Computed example of a mutant assay.
Amino acid sequence: MALMSISAAADTRTSGLPEVADPSRVAPKDARELSRLFFDQLAVLEEGTPEYSYARSTLIEMNMSLVRYAAGRFRSRGAEEMEDIVQVGMIGLIKAIDRFELTREVEFTSFAIPYIVGEIKRFFRDTTWAVHVPRRLQEARVQLARATEELRSRLGRTPTVRELSELMSLPEEEVREARLAANGYNSSSLDAAIGGSEEGESSLQDFIGAEDQALGLVEDFHALAPLIAELDERDRQIIHMRFVEELTQAQIGEHLGVSQMHVSRLLSRTLARLREGMLTHR
């Protein structure tokens, strides 16, 4: 760890954490090891303190390479737009850091990349519409394009609204709305060819990335619902505030009148119970 210097004596400002001279230049392998140490301390530090701010900002800088890696998938964009992509990716990184907990028992890199790429994809989705279209219809339009192509290949003709409705599990009226919403889009379908090359044609989907594997979590969400229903009211309230309202543990503690550490213990216990229930379901 040549790029890192550790104080000989523990600095009370950093709660004993190593002082990283230039976090943005820490090698990825070292960043993974250090991140676990910083996340471990972040869980017990009080938000708003200098120690907490130091740990959080160091984590952000150490893991900026994840943003550059994710942004590299969009190299075909111009330099000016790439700068926007990196800035948007940083938002995803910060969200991942604020929501990550070691109790998840996954590597932070595996947890953070979907957040970073998700923010970038959301950026493309929200900036490529000529007129304002509700988010629900924006997403339905993409689903409609894929369903139409699938049925056209399968049936050898343009599918009917009813056939699309059955495949998409949407009411026919929403399928019609999605078709109308497509008129507000100012670029090609994600799957439409946008140019040729010696290797063949490419589609916008090739530049945005692979199909979102998170779609496979739908079944898990259905399995999770009854498990959450079995929790007592306080545990459900904590889960709701943490993952729906996206409050920090300190904010939850203030709302419930307990310490941040107590919230952390309750949350860890509840998540472990839900995880065990999910594994049993599988």
Rank of each mutant, 00 (worst) to 15 (best):
K121G: 07
G200Y: 07
V258D: 06
A71I: 12
L271N: 01
V20W: 02
E163H: 04
L34N: 03
M168H: 10
E119F: 02
R36V: 08
D11W: 02
L137K: 00
E245L: 15
R125P: 01
Q41S: 13
A250L: 09
A147W: 00
T280D: 05
T109A: 15
G16T: 04
E139I: 14
R154V: 09
R157Q: 03
I239N: 05
S65Q: 02
D206S: 08
D232S: 03
A9D: 13
I238W: 04
H255D: 04
D220C: 07
Q249F: 14
A145M: 11
V258C: 09
A140W: 00
L137N: 01
P134M: 06
F123N: 06
R275E: 14
A250D: 08
Y52Q: 08
V88E: 09
I239Q: 09
L267H: 15
S188F: 12
V26A: 04
Y54D: 05
S110T: 11
L42C: 00
E80P: 00
T158I: 10
V258R: 05
T127V: 11
E245G: 10
R236T: 10
K29V: 13
E254D: 15
S76A: 14
M82V: 04
R99K: 11
S202N: 02
I208M: 10
E219T: 13
A96F: 07
V86Y: 03
L34H: 03
E163L: 06
L155V: 10
K95G: 08
A10I: 01
D220H: 08
E233Q: 12
G156H: 13
M82F: 11
A10C: 08
E51K: 03
M64Y: 08
V26D: 06
E246V: 08
S153N: 10
L37H: 14
S153A: 14
F100R: 01
L274N: 05
D235L: 01
L151T: 01
R236E: 10
A214W: 14
D232F: 01
V44Q: 13
E246D: 04
E177W: 15
E173G: 05
L93A: 10
R36A: 06
A145R: 08
I239C: 11
D232N: 13
S35W: 03
I85Y: 03
P18Q: 01
G118E: 05
E163T: 06
L190F: 04
R273P: 00
R135V: 12
G48V: 11
R236D: 07
